[in-house]
Each structure stands twice: as C-alpha cells, then as structure tokens.
C-alpha cells in the first residue's frame, strides 16, 4: 500500500513541477528538464506499481532489478552490442547507404531510369522487407554477414528514393545560373545539386538509422551464433530471465538514440542553412 501511495505522489509531484515549468518561457534548461522529469516520474511509478501490486518479476521486473542486472551482466551486454550493433547494423548501414547513394547519382543522369525506379523504389520502401531476413540468413550464414545483408536490403530503397528526390531539388533558376556560367555536369553536381540535396539525403540517413538496428536484431531470430542482442532476447524470454531482456532493451534504446542523435547532429552541421534547421536552438 505504501508503494502505491508513493507512486501516486510521484505522479502528482512530477506533473505539478512540469506544469509549473512549462508555463514559464521555454529556455534550453526547461526544454531539457521537462521531459527528464517526465521520464523519472514514469520510472518511479513503474517501480512503485511493480512493488505495490507485487507483480511477478517474470512478467515485469522493477527498474532497480534491471539496473542491477545491467551492471552484473555488462560483459555479456557488451559482447552482444559489438556483434549486433557494430558488426551487423553499422556495417550494413554504411554499405547499404553508400551503394544507394552511388546508385542514385548514377541513375540521375538517365531520366528514363529515374522515372522507372522512383515508383518501384517507393513501392518497395513500403513493403515488409524484413521478411527477406530468413532468405538472407540462408545465403550468408548465421554470423554477422547475413545481418549486415538484411540491413543493406532494408536501408537501400529509402535511401535511394530520398537521394534521387534530393538531386531534383535544385531550382530551375539556380540551374539556369549554372548554365550561364557554362558549368559542366560535374561542377553543377558538386557545387549545386549535392548541397541542395543534403536535407533529403539526411532524411534518408535518419530513416535508415532506425531501420538498421531493427533489421540486425530481427535477423538474429532466424539464426545466429550464440551471441548477439536478438539471440539473447529470444533465448532469455525462453528462460523467463526478463531482467536480462530488459537490460538488452536498454542497450538497444540507448544505441538507437545515440545513432539517430549522431546523424541528426551531423545534419544540423551540414544543413544549417535549411529553413527547417533555423528558428531552433
């Protein structure tokens, strides 16, 4: 009972602070503080509910237990992180986005190809590509190579479509301007069209960053060596070791946020001139 009252108090207190804070003019500090307090409140309520209602840790372990497991099993978590995120997701991300980018630049010179590939690419980008995972695991084996392959296939089309669209972004007037300078194809591409395409390219890179992690983890459900985040999650669920599963989820969430955040930060650096980046910060 005490835990439940504590949870209720935590909720009321968190909401009250946030309400007060959000009425004040938004500064950098409040914009950071409000979601942080919200998150802490959620964790406190979670802890209180699990303890107060005596929910079995097999169903939902309390945050403190997850933290303890996280610290105790950090070597396993690190090993899984390297296997899945670094070897699988990151390799596939770089390969997939790289080939998609080069393909886009190559087909950009042929309007016929472009008109054919854009609808097909848009169509494929909406398909459940992740279903290719079992096939690719069969082709490339159980180790990280097959996971990287799944990631390549998943990120390829979103990246391709965005880059091709971005390369068409330069305005007619600006292209006329390059013409009056008698600029060649390469110069126009380098000085005008690639910079103008950057917001689209980064949009593709951001979409691809979330897909990459998902692809690498889910592909492990179809076969993997005895390490990796997907492998650990599916086997730990079988052993009802949910605290370890949750620890893996924390790793995945942190890795995912860091990955996305890094791309977004780079975007901010590169496309500082774009209207969507201004008026913030």
């Amino acid at each position: 009972m005490g835990w439940l009252i504590f949870g209720l108090l935590a909720w009321a207190f968190g909401w009250w602070i946030n309400h007060r804070l959000s009425d004040r003019p938004a500064t950098r500090a409040t914009r950071l503080a409000v979601p942080t307090i919200f998150g802490i409140t959620i964790i406190l309520i979670w802890e209180a509910l699990v303890r107060g209602l005596e929910i079995s840790p097999v169903l939902l372990p309390p945050p403190t237990q997850i933290a303890v497991t996280f610290a105790a099993k950090s070597d396993i978590l690190w090993q899984d992180f390297v296997q899945t995120v670094i070897k699988g997701a990151l390799t596939g991300y770089v390969l997939g986005c790289g080939t998609a980018f080069l393909t886009a630049v190559a087909i950009d010179r042929f309007p016929f190809l472009k008109r054919g590939l854009l609808p097909v690419g848009n169509f494929v980008a909406a398909l459940p590509i992740i279903g290719m995972a079992p096939i690719l695991v069969m082709w490339f084996g159980f180790d990280w190579q097959s996971k990287a392959a799944v990631v390549v296939v998943m990120v390829f089309f979103p990246m391709l479509v965005n880059t091709v669209q971005g390369l068409q972004e330069a305005g007619a007037m600006q292209r006329d301007l390059m013409r009056t300078y008698a600029a060649g194809y390469g110069q126009t591409l380098l000085k005008l069209r690639l910079p103008a395409a950057m917001p689209f390219i980064f949009n593709g890179l951001k979409i691809a960053s979330t897909l990459a992690l998902i692809g690498a983890i889910v592909a492990e459900f179809f076969g993997s060596p005895i390490k990796g985040m997907g492998f650990r999650i599916s086997t730990s669920v079988g052993q009802l070791a949910l605290d370890l599963v949750w620890a893996e989820i924390v790793v995945a969430a942190v890795a995912g946020s860091a990955f996305y955040g890094a791309v977004a930060l780079l975007e901010k650096r590169v496309t500082f001139w774009h209207p969507s980046q201004q008026g913030r910060s």
Binding site: G171, M173, Q174, D176, L177, R179, T180, Y181, A182, L192, P195, A196, M198, T271, F272, W273, H274
Partner: peptide
C-alpha cells in the same frame, strides 16, 4: 558566347545558395 562566359546574368530573385 555562353561558353566564353561573355555575360553575367541577374535573375528576378537573388537565388543565392543558402549554404
């Protein structure tokens, strides 16, 4: 003449590259 860069052209809008 265009290939010789014989003229400068000013458009209706400034059309400066924002980056």
């Amino acid at each position: 003449a265009r290939r010789n860069r014989a003229y400068g052209y000013v458009f209706q809008a400034a059309g400066l590259y924002p980056w």
